[in-house]
């Protein structure tokens, strides 16, 4: 058996920066994970369909704009509707403190702000991956 942690890194929303997402994607690859990178401007539907087809263990959503609450929630809602409850969801970006707990309630297990070390994300994934 040669099991590998598969991660989808997606960048929902309309803002055009994916530097952070790419850095995280590379760090996860270097930690031995298979990282599906999908690029900018992903809708919640695209993210969820991609997660299904790629059978990922983890979805990492990267976001800079203020619209994170709705987008993150759209993704978690759709995942629940499709019955994908064994996927770990993490988020990164500039997210105000008061939103972090709301996101966690909505099903985003880990929220990583600016200045997070990539090793912390790797460790978090290894510890919390569900299947």
């Amino acid at each position: 058996m040669d099991q590998k942690i598969r991660v989808l890194i997606a960048k929902p929303g309309l803002d055009g920066h994916d530097r952070g997402a790419k850095i995280v994607a590379r760090a996860l690859r270097d930690a031995g994970m298979e990282v599906v990178y999908t690029g900018l401007h992903q809708t919640a539907e695209m993210i969820v369909e991609t997660a299904i087809q790629e059978d990922v263990n983890v979805i990492g959503l990267s976001l800079l704009s203020g619209a994170h609450m709705t987008l993150f929630k759209d993704v978690t809602k759709l995942l629940n509707a499709k019955g994908l409850n064994d996927v770990l969801i993490i988020g990164g970006g500039i997210i105000p403190e008061e939103d972090v707990s709301k996101l966690k309630k909505a099903g985003v297990s880990g929220v990583f702000g600016p200045g997070t070390h990539c090793e912390d994300i790797v460790r978090f994934i290894r510890k919390n991956v569900k299947k």
Partner: peptide
């Protein structure tokens, strides 16, 4: 042992 799988970017 990891991989960056980026072909989907062109098939969004």
């Amino acid at each position: 042992g990891g991989a960056l799988l980026g072909d989907r970017i062109r098939m969004m």
